[in-house]
Amino acid sequence: MAEEFHSSQPIYLQIMERVCQQIVRKELAPGAKLPSVREMALTFGVNPNTIQRTYQELERMEVVLVKRGQGTFVTEDTAKLMNLKRDMQRQIIQSYVNHLRELGFSNEEMKQGLSQFLKEDHDD
């Protein structure tokens, strides 16, 4: 079935993000083979050239590697996987901080808010 996308962002980026999430969650383990371009195109209901672009970008980020004639695989390099995880965390923190800054929160308030939230969330 075709997946839904935000229509105002490049689709190749949105699919990249989903693949990265799967890698960080270990749904795609280190060394695992990614589906073929055609399979991915069908899963997401998008043009195969878009998936090609996604895979190229992931390869450029060194998150996956292409083995000639065999397919595309998640890297087994733990340092690179850690980097990916940290980058994704950073992005989320960045957007958290940006949103609160827009509302006029100070750094101290942000930290307090976050630890308060985590405490309550933990108590549940």
């Binding site: 229509s7 105002s8 962002q9 490049p10 689709i11 190749y12 980026l13 878009t50 672009r53």
Partner: peptide, 8 residues
């Protein structure tokens, strides 16, 4: 994709 990327 360029339209989405450049114009949002």
């Amino acid at each position: 994709e360029t339209i989405r990327e450049e114009k949002g």
